[in-house]
Design a protein around this nucleic acid. Structure first.
Ligand SMILES: [Mn+2]
Ligand SMILES: [Mn+2]
Ligand SMILES: [Mn+2]
Ligand SMILES: [Mn+2]
Lengths: 234, 234
DNA sequence: CTATTAGTTTAGACTGTTCTAAATCGGGGT
DNA sequence: ACCCCGATTTAGAACAGTCTAAACTAATAG
């Protein structure tokens, strides 16, 4: 088996690879998990020996199929835990991430099954991020755009929010902006401040950092998908 | 902070100390956590540096007040988790121990609080073992006796069962013998086989190993305590 | 009072993970 | 084509935790 440290490396590589595609650089991993590049190089060697990554010296690293499955397993644990903590233990949006990070490597497959059953096999976590299925099939690509890239008069649905910044999450919770919320962009100020109308109701001005942590999909496209009977997250 | 390995040493020392009193021998610890005596000696040194045990060379080891608090904290986590898994995630009696062992070092104080609240601050775990209070006050002494030490015609209440042997637990579950069950001892055969009447109902013959893992208190004493308004576990 | 020996500690080695400091690589600008 | 500089790897050390083998201690049997 792999240690929890190794699982954290694979999770980090997976996340970076999902955003910017392979190959993933040593320094990107080092930044993500707060270690030195030298430590990362060393660990990439042992991960390659275990067959979960392939590493080309000076070029970067890529997950193997096995490595991706391990990463998906950890991500599934993480997001199921987040959903469970929010749903059944009354955790708030902004608290679940750290607790899930601590537990994700230590739950059994039995625990995973029972939590999934208690939640009725949820498709997304509290931040709107998709939960890998039990068979660990690869997640499909992200077709969302950052709110900070939207233009005035766009109508969008909030799909997911970055779960890593607690302050931003608390801000958004207070503003009533959660996955599934409909937004109309009212204004875009210099330095990235975005003003939106929330659910056709109140108006909110979101600082750039907050706007960057929100990912949205086009409200019209989503409605079309809806008519085809597909599921958008609730 | 202490590592989870250190927490496991302290938990083991606590358990042995609770049963046979200090000082606790190196080999007793080694047996309990399945390591070599040499490894234990080495770790006792570092635990002494951290101020959680005092160790007299060749004599044995004892928890300090700090060390006992750490052990109680881990035990509280363990038993709360067992209770939660049984109550809210439909785990059986015999499955909870291993899962709790894996999680006990990794939950936050916040998680502990929420689990305790969800269970309404339980006093005992599913095996009848007392759960240390949130302020980590020392548990009071064990006034139970093993079922294997009972005599014919004794009437007793099952107080707790050893949570370490999964087979015995499955046996007892099938036999309907759980904490709170009233037993009348019908017969004691050679080699320790004990025959009991369960709740004035069915009769069961329990092999020696099973009888040894059951601890009981006198049914009459318990009734007296009950009349004083004290709580016996349900 | 000495010899035996079970239990304990020490010595030394090994694995896993991380770090700092130094050497090396390679792509972009001249 | 060559140089440079930032990114990367290597070298070497450190720490935690564990092991085996060897030395030691203390309690007991004779
Ligand atoms: Mn993690
Ligand atoms: Mn999340
Ligand atoms: Mn443990
Ligand atoms: Mn228990």
């Amino acid at each position: 088996m792999l240690s929890d440290v190794m699982e954290d490396y694979l999770k980090a590589i997976y996340r970076i690879q999902a955003r910017s595609g392979p190959p993933v650089s040593t320094s990107a991993i080092a930044d993500a998990i707060d270690k030195t590049p030298a430590s990362v190089t060393s660990m990439l060697g042992t991960l390659e020996d275990r067959g979960v990554v392939v590493h080309q010296k000076y070029k970067g690293v890529e997950l193997t199929t096995d490595g991706e499955r391990v990463a998906l397993e950890v991500v599934r644990h993480h997001r199921l835990l987040e959903a469970y903590l929010a749903e059944h233990l009354d955790y708030s949006w902004s608290e679940v991430h750290d607790e899930a990070d601590a537990l994700e490597h230590h739950i059994s497959e039995e625990f995973e099954r029972r939590v999934a059953a208690a939640l009725d096999d949820p498709a997304v976590d509290p931040h709107g991020d998709p939960i890998p299925s039990a068979d660990l099939a690869p997640l499909d690509g992200d077709d969302t755009t950052p709110l900070s890239a939207c233009e005035v008069d766009d109508r969008v649905l909030v799909t997911r929010v970055n779960d890593r910044d607690r302050e931003d999450l608390e801000y958004l919770e207070a503003a009533g902006v959660t996955p599934g919320t409909a937004l109309k962009i009212v204004g875009v100020a210099p330095f990235g401040m975005v003003t939106v109308r929330v659910d056709g109701d109140t108006e909110q001005s979101l600082p750039e950092s907050v706007a960057e942590s929100i990912r949205v999909c086009d409200a019209v496209d989503a409605a079309v998908a809806d008519e085809r009977g597909e599921v958008t997250d609730a």
